[in-house]
Design a binder for these strands. Structure first.
Lengths: 114, 114
DNA sequence: ATAACATTTCAACAAACATCGAAATATTGC
DNA sequence: GCAATATTTCGATGTTTGTTGAAATGTTAT
């Protein structure tokens, strides 16, 4: 990962609402969830949310696909992994002081347990 | 680590010059290096640099101590480690999908090899 | 005490950011 | 086609950010 990409990704995560959004998407798993669901879960105005989604998407941390009238946003685990990689890679002067880190969904989630 | 602290740390790293500064300090090792040396290495105005140091320090990513008329800045490896921990911890819905990451200086550096 | 050096503080300013309200765009069902 | 739903786009606005120049502070040497 290039430094510019890292800065963009870090900036995308360096905001309260956006960090919440991203973490919610991470927990939602690779299938993602519709924008409206995120909006209600985090109590954010839909247009504000779009703004933040855009930032996350530009950073490559999130992808979108349309499903009917809903837009389904999903976390991009690969990008998260490479960001972590970049941070640890440039840690310790390039010497491998940390084990490889990978961030991928633990398992497929069906529904949130009541 | 709390979310607020994470956001602050991420914001501190989410800027070109600051990421450079931090990485330089990381490579300098736990003994750190004087502000002036960082200024020349990265070609930054001293007051601008102070501004960025402040941000890093507020985020807990850096510490200062005075040595004569120089201010020695050093990376705070622990903080970096806990930031990485926070990011991986909240990855995958709390399930441990990634091995523990630690970021500490590889070894003591004497001088940069020519 | 004075001069030189290293760094910080202060005030100012353009640029980017986060949020809001209103209007526009797509999609579905009638 | 028309109304309803889901989301985005646009314009405006207050806030934060990054940089600069000038002045102030602290430290060392003479």
């Amino acid at each position: 990962m290039e430094k510019t990409a890292a800065v963009t990704a870090l900036a995308a995560l360096a905001q309260d609402n956006r960090l919440d959004v991203f973490r919610l998407l991470v927990q939602a798993g690779p299938e993602g969830m519709p924008a409206g669901a995120v909006a209600t879960a985090l109590d954010l105005a839909p247009n504000t949310l779009t703004f933040h989604f855009d930032r996350l998407r530009t950073a490559g941390l999130v992808t979108v696909r349309r499903d009917g009238r809903s837009m389904i946003y999903a976390a991009q685990f690969d990008k998260m992994t490479s960001l972590l990689g970049f941070l640890t890679e440039n840690c310790c002067g390039g010497a491998p002081c940390a084990p490889a880190v990978e961030c991928k969904p633990a398992r497929k989630r069906t529904k949130v347990p009541a």
